[in-house]
C-alpha cells in the first residue's frame, strides 16, 4: 500500500515539449516501466498549440481536459515555466485532475494565492510547487528524484527539501528502511499539500508503519505538524529540521527558509516535535538512525 501514487495513477506532463519536462518524463516513464512492465503510466503531455504532435512516443494534447478525455489522465506533472505555471495548475483543477505535482521553481507567491483559492472546494490535490515530486517505490515516480535511492518499504517520508530528501532516503535504505511513499512538499511560502495533510494520509495508510518528516527554518508548519502528531498520529515519527545555524533575516535558497521576528527557528520547531514524542535527529547524518530509534522505542 501507499498514498497518492498507486497502480491506478495515469500521468501527463504539462510542459512536455520543454527540455527539462521531456527529460524527466522519460526518466519517470522508464522507472514506471521497470515497476509495471505491462502498463503505460505516463500517457502523454500537454503544450497549448502543439496538440496532435508526438515527442519521443508521448502524444501531445492542447489542453489538460483533452488529455483527461483521450488518454485517461488523472495526474499531472507540471514543468511549465514560472510565469505561466499558476495558470497551468488552475487548468488541472478545472479539468478535474486528482493529483497535481508541480516541480517548477520560482512561481510568484501571489499566483500561488490565486491557485490556493481555486484548490479550495475542488477535488484536486496539489503537491509543491518547487519540489522534487512524489514516489511510491516499486510503483511509479512523478518528479525529478533518482528512483533507485528509494527502496520499497514501510516509512512514509515527507520533506520540504530536494537533495536532503535523497539524503534521508539513502540513510533509511542503508538501514533497511524502505519507503511506502516519499513526498517532497516544497519550501515555498504557499504550498498545496502540507505536513499535516500527509501525516493524516500516512496515519491511515495500512502500508505505512512509521513516518519521517524533514522540515526547515521559516514559518510554523512544523510546529502545527507537531500539534497534529500529538493529537492524531499513533505511528512512530522521526524528524529533522534544516537550518539550525542559519542567521535571522537571511533567505537560505528556499523562498520560505527565512527566520524573522524570532519565530520559525530550528530550535523552537525541534522542541515542539520532541514534545510531541517525535525522535529528532540533531545532525543530518543521523536522520536514518532517528527513524530506527523511533521504531525501536515503539516496539520496545
Amino acid at each position: 500500500m501507499s498514498i497518492l501514487v498507486t497502480e491506478k495513477t495515469r500521468v501527463i506532463t504539462q510542459g512536455i515539449t520543454g527540455k527539462t519536462g521531456l527529460f524527466h518524463s522519460q526518466k519517470s516513464r522508464e522507472y514506471a516501466k521497470e515497476c509495471q512492465p505491462d502498463v503505460d503510466v505516463f500517457v502523454g503531455g500537454v503544450t497549448p498549440g502543439k496538440g496532435g504532435q508526438e515527442v519521443d512516443g508521448f502524444p501531445v494534447f492542447n489542453s489538460v481536459a483533452e488529455a483527461v478525455e483521450k488518454a485517461g489522465a488523472n495526474t499531472s506533472m507540471v514543468f511549465v515555466p514560472p510565469p505561466f505555471c499558476g495558470d497551468a495548475i488552475i487548468e488541472c483543477i478545472d479539468a478535474g485532475i486528482e493529483l497535481i505535482v508541480a516541480i517548477t521553481e520560482g512561481i510568484p507567491t501571489l499566483d500561488m494565492v490565486r491557485v490556493e483559492a481555486y484548490l479550495k472546494g475542488s477535488k484536486s490535490r496539489l503537491i509543491g510547487p518547487n519540489c522534487p515530486g512524489i514516489i511510491t517505490p516499486g510503483i511509479a515516480k512523478i518528479g525529478i528524484m533518482p528512483g533507485y535511492i528509494h527502496k520499497p518499504g514501510g516509512v512514509g517520508l515527507i520533506s520540504k527539501s530536494g537533495t536532503l530528501t535523497y539524503e534521508a532516503a539513502w540513510q533509511l535504505g542503508n538501514l533497511g528502511l524502505g519507503q511506502s511513499t516519499a513526498v517532497g512538499i516544497g519550501g515555498d511560502p504557499i504550498i498545496g499539500t502540507t505536513f499535516i495533510d500527509l501525516l493524516e494520509l500516512f496515519e491511515n495508510d495500512p502500508g505505512t508503519d512509521a513516518i519521517m518528516m524533514i522540515g526547515e527554518i521559516g514559518g510554523n508548519a512544523e510546529v502545527l505538524a507537531a500539534e497534529y502528531i500529538k493529537e492524531h498520529v499513533t505511528k512512530p515519527v522521526a524528524g529533522f529540521i534544516a537550518g539550525q545555524t542559519a542567521p535571522p533575516g537571511k533567505r537560505m535558497g528556499h523562498a520560505g527558509a527565512i527566520i524573522s521576528g524570532g519565530s520559525g527557528t530550528a530550535a523552537e520547531k525541534m522542541e515542539a516535535l520532541e514534545a510531541a514524542g517525535v525522535v529528532v535527529a540533531k545532525s543530518p547524518a543521523d536522520m536514518g538512525k532517528a527513524m530506527q530509534e523511533a521504531i525501536a522505542r515503539r516496539n520496545g
Binding site: L164, I217, A242, K282, S283, P284, A285
Partner: peptide, 24 residues
C-alpha cells in the same frame, strides 16, 4: 553543496562537530 536544504544541513553538520560555517 547542491540543494538548499542539504546546504543548510551541511552548515548544521559543521557546527554539530565544533566548526563554524563561512557560508551557505
Amino acid at each position: 553543496v547542491n540543494g538548499a536544504g542539504l546546504a543548510m544541513s551541511t552548515m548544521d553538520l559543521i557546527k554539530h562537530h565544533g566548526g563554524e560555517p563561512a557560508n551557505f
